[in-house]
Design a protein around this nucleic acid. Structure first.
Length: 178
DNA sequence: ACCCCGATCGTA
DNA sequence: ACGATCGGGGTT
């Protein structure tokens, strides 16, 4: 079943951990989510919204379940989903997936995911609880994960808000047996 | 108008 | 370890 508003309205770390094992569907690609990160509120120095509402960050203050896509280093896109209550700026970043169909590719890194799935700035501010081109579904997987500090930051490294799958079947480019 | 920076990636 | 590359955001 497709994840609904109530799923994304929860605490961001609840959303980030519950997204492990869910399936992102976009442009005919379907991938198990294997890695996520939380960015939470104006007191999180690594969160883009920490400095307030801007043209770019306003989506994070909006309704949970909308996409937040941004360009990084002039070349790559990062795909997030807005979480928590209206006016509380937070989101979950999708950092790793494994295709559930051939060629069963394991993709680690938000830029590479967006490149493969075809996600660019035109995919920003989409309601993924209503869209039929970009959405996330639950296929009943409950997969173990561990938490670590977030990747690539100069601030907010004290937070253990990166979640990554521990089952090796989902971190290799080979079919999995579930 | 100008300057600095970055939730990355591929190459070395 | 490092450079590419360009929009966002702050400052002049």
């Amino acid at each position: 079943m497709i994840l609904n508003r109530a799923f994304f309205l929860q605490d961001t770390n609840t959303v980030s951990t519950n997204l492990i094992g869910k399936v992102i569907c976009c442009n005919n690609f379907q991938g198990i989510i294997t890695e996520t990160e939380s960015y939470i509120g104006m007191n999180d120095p690594a969160c883009h919204a920490a400095k307030g509402i801007t043209k770019r960050t306003k989506i994070m203050f909006g309704l949970a379940g909308f996409s937040y896509v941004f360009l990084i280093y002039g070349k790559y896109h990062c795909f997030n989903i807005v979480t928590e209550a209206l006016n509380f700026p937070a989101a979950t970043l999708i950092r790793g997936i494994k295709l559930i169909h051939p060629p069963y590719t394991y993709i680690n890194g938000p830029g590479k995911i967006c490149r493969l799935l075809g996600i660019d700035l035109t995919y920003n501010a989409i309601d993924i609880t209503l869209s039929n081109t970009l959405y996330i579904k639950d296929i009943g997987y409950q997969l173990p994960y561990r938490s670590t500090p977030r990747i690539g930051l100069s601030k907010g490294l004290d937070k253990m808000w990166r979640y990554i799958i521990t089952d090796k079947d989902f971190s290799t480019t080979t079919p999995f047996s579930y």
